[in-house]
Simulated scan of single mutants.
Amino acid sequence: MTGSNVRPPPARDNGCPTGDSAGPCREDRPLSTVPHQQLPAVQKLRVRFAKRGRLRFTSHRDFQRAFERALRRADVPMAWSQGFTPHPRVSYAGAAPTGAASEAEYLELAVTRVCDPEQVRAALDAALPPGLDVVEVVEAGPGALADRLQASSWAIELPGAVPGQAAAAVTTFLAAASVPVERLTKNGVRQLDPRAAVLRLTADTDADPVTLRAVVRHQSPTVRPDEVLAGLRLVAGFTPPQPPRTVRLAQGEWDDDTGVLGDPLADAPGRDT
Rank of each mutant, 00 (worst) to 15 (best):
A123G: 03
L212E: 01
E118P: 06
V260F: 11
G252T: 10
D208V: 15
V6F: 13
G19Y: 07
C25R: 14
R48V: 04
L107S: 05
G160E: 08
A70W: 05
A175C: 01
A66V: 00
R195N: 03
R48S: 04
Q219G: 14
C25D: 09
A101S: 15
S4K: 11
E182F: 03
T258L: 10
P17R: 02
L31I: 04
R190Y: 02
C25T: 03
V138G: 00
R200P: 12
P225K: 15
L45R: 03
G259Q: 03
T239A: 01
R48C: 12
A140I: 08
S152R: 04
Q64V: 11
H36G: 08
T205C: 08
D133K: 13
A230M: 06
T185K: 11
E105V: 10
P221N: 14
P240Y: 09
L199A: 10
Q37E: 13
G53I: 10
G131N: 06
S153R: 10
L232R: 04
R183F: 05
R69P: 00
R224F: 08
V90N: 11
A101Q: 07
V181L: 05
R12A: 06
T205V: 15
A166T: 09
P241Q: 15
T112Q: 02
L192C: 06
Q43E: 13
D133P: 11
A169I: 02
G94K: 05
K186I: 01
A41E: 12
A93G: 02
G3K: 10
R72C: 03
S152A: 12
V210D: 03
A70C: 01
Q242K: 13
R245G: 05
F238Q: 05
P180N: 03
G99S: 04
A167Y: 00
E118K: 14
F84E: 01
P244Q: 12
P209Q: 04
A266M: 05
D263G: 02
P209I: 09
G262C: 03
H36A: 14
G83P: 06
A176M: 05
C16R: 12
E136C: 09
Q64D: 08
E103I: 12
F63G: 07
R121L: 03
G15H: 13
A126M: 08
R248C: 02
